[in-house]
Design a protein around this nucleic acid. Structure first.
Length: 159
DNA sequence: GCCAACGTTGGC
DNA sequence: GCCAACGTTGGC
């Protein structure tokens, strides 16, 4: 999951009550489909900081609630209000994620690009703007190995 | 700040 | 259904 740290960073998540937040505001159909149809409780999350001097994977989180309607789309005063959405047809969905770890050292795009497994990651592809994208089990393992952290997942599901 | 890539909108 | 125009994202 990508986020601009100036808008919502890993530290913001860490500082939340119970270190949990709803991942609201996603307004892209491809990302929506991932949230709604593929992502489940127990999935690992790589937290990526975008739009900064050194964009990088900076931390780990875990999905703690399956997808449910993103109510911010229904609120005319919310930033991401969408008049197309309604209670009967929410259109947009979100999941809840919980903080797990901060990488001892951020893994920058240079780090990823130089790695035999991680160089294929979607986040490196030019022009890629998906704010939620799939990570393979091999990529998850490689990130953990590089970071030196133990696998923090409680549920045992893969990324 | 620049600009390439992408998704969405809307006229036709 | 096509496609040009536009707004946004995001690396650099």
């Amino acid at each position: 999951m990508k986020s601009e740290p100036g808008c919502y960073g890993l530290q913001t998540l860490k500082d939340e009550p119970e270190q949990i937040t709803c991942w609201d505001g996603v307004r892209n159909y491809q990302a929506r489909n991932l949230l709604r149809d593929r992502i489940r409780v127990g999935d690992g999350v790589l937290f990526y900081h975008s739009n900064i001097r050194w964009p990088a994977v900076v931390g780990l989180a875990e999905v703690v609630r399956d997808s449910y309607p993103d109510h911010t789309a229904l609120d005319p005063n919310a930033d991401h209000f969408d008049p197309k959405s309604s209670v009967d047809n929410p259109v947009w969905y979100m999941v809840d994620i919980q903080y797990r770890a901060t990488l001892p050292r951020p893994l920058t795009r240079v780090d990823l690009a130089g790695h035999p497994v991680l160089s294929g990651m979607g986040v490196l592809k030019k022009g890629n703007r998906l704010s939620v994208q799939p990570v393979s089990a091999a990529e998850w393992r490689a990130i953990l190995e590089l970071s030196g952290l133990p696998d923090p997942l409680t549920g045992g599901r893969r990324p």
